[in-house]
């Protein structure tokens, strides 16, 4: 039975998602609807990254590669049969006859991402620090190269189009809520607790019998599953995309959300996603305004990323634990009605 604090955390975070959905619904503006949908998808990706990074303390660059796997998997299996020849002229015959519903396709995308992660990552989990980061970066490059060049199933560097539109606000929000539950459950599970112990002191975790690579591996596989599902949902939202959608730029945005919110907690992932989405959309609107009003001679591009990068550096220097701090929202003073009865410490 999860403790009271975790349940409060869950309730507050789900409420945050619900409020966002309500705002989108009540405004009736299509743009806001789309922004909140993307926010919910990003939330799934950020939570996925938090599951691995927040608990193990290891930075992973490969995350967005798994998002790509999820997106391409569902795109491939849900593409209407009559469109296959047009989108993927060189598709293998075996695959040319299967067509799944988007829901199944997204689930399959998550599974394939998780399976790829499970198969590839086990030996990588022994590494720490810089070696771990460089291998995960290398993994991202490998996945990206494959997406760019495996024309038979990805249409190569060109746009993959014709994915059925199936992800709406409610689907995205529903899965985001599941992702919050999943991330909290993993954090409070035995694996999660031991993994966090290993993050703080790897040697000590060994002495209490924790097999650190196995713990990390479990986190990594769950993380890849969430990335795959997020990628699948995104594919059915955007309906056409190319491999460049799953590379360093997206990595930067998702990592930025987690870092700004605070990587150690699920609350941080949610806070970061919401805060960065608002800031991002605001800046983009500002950028567009500058461009339509022709304030400057040329077009303004990149301002959004410049500000986000500055915010990331600023946060890491001034408040390394992130906007949300180092405790889950349910454990903060806001919800502490009275001192804990087990008052061994003053």
């Amino acid at each position: 039975m999860p403790d009271r604090r975790t349940l409060i955390t869950l309730a507050v975070l789900v409420a945050a998602v619900a409020v966002s959905v309500a705002v989108a619904e009540l405004s009736g503006v299509r743009l806001i609807d789309r922004v909140v949908t993307v926010m919910c998808i990003n939330l799934i990706l950020v939570l996925g990254l938090q599951v691995f990074m927040g608990n193990s303390g290891i930075l992973s660059f490969a995350h967005i590669g798994f998002m790509g796997i999820g997106a391409y998997t569902t795109a491939l299996f849900t593409l209407p049969l009559q469109m296959r020849g047009m989108v993927l002229p060189n598709l293998y015959d075996v695959l040319a006859t299967v067509e799944l519903s988007p829901a199944l396709g997204i689930a399959l995308g998550g599974l394939v991402a998780a399976m790829v992660a499970a198969a590839l990552s086990f030996p990588l989990m022994r590494l720490s620090d810089a070696a771990a980061v460089i291998t995960s970066f290398a993994l991202l490059v490998v996945l990206h190269t494959i997406m760019v060049h495996w024309s038979e199933v990805t249409n190569g560097p060109r746009t993959f189009f014709g994915v059925p539109e199936a992800t709406g606000l409610y689907q995205a929000a529903g899965v985001a809520v599941l992702a919050i539950v999943g991330a909290l459950a993993f954090k409070e599970s035995r694996t999660g607790v031991l993994l966090r112990a290993s993050r703080d002191d790897e040697v000590a975790a060994h002495t209490i019998g924790a097999n650190v690579p196995v713990l990390r591996w479990r986190g990594f596989v769950l993380s890849a599953f969430m990335a795959g599902v997020g990628g699948g949902l995104w594919a059915h939202f955007i309906t056409s995309f190319s491999p460049n959608a799953f590379y360093l730029k997206e990595t930067f945005v998702i990592l930025g959300m987690l870092v700004i919110g605070g990587g150690a907690t699920v609350t941080g992932a949610v806070v970061g996603t919401i805060a960065v989405t608002i800031a991002y959309e605001g800046l983009r609107a500002f950028e567009n305004m500058l461009n339509t009003e022709q304030v400057f001679d040329g077009t303004v591009v990149g301002l959004t990323e410049v500000v986000l990068a500055c915010a990331m550096i600023g946060i890491l220097v001034l408040r390394p634990e992130g906007l949300a701090g180092s405790c889950e929202i349910g454990a903060t003073a806001l919800f502490r009605r009275r001192p804990q009865p087990t008052g061994e410490r003053p």
């Binding site: 930075l59 930067f252 990592l255 870092v259 990149g302 301002l303 990068a309 890491l316």
Partner: peptide, 18 residues
């Protein structure tokens, strides 16, 4: 540090864009 240097890399690139 890895994240700040990654962020700084993005910062420089997009400053050049801008």
């Amino acid at each position: 540090v890895l994240i700040t240097s990654f962020a700084f890399s993005t910062l420089l690139q997009h400053a050049a864009l801008l």
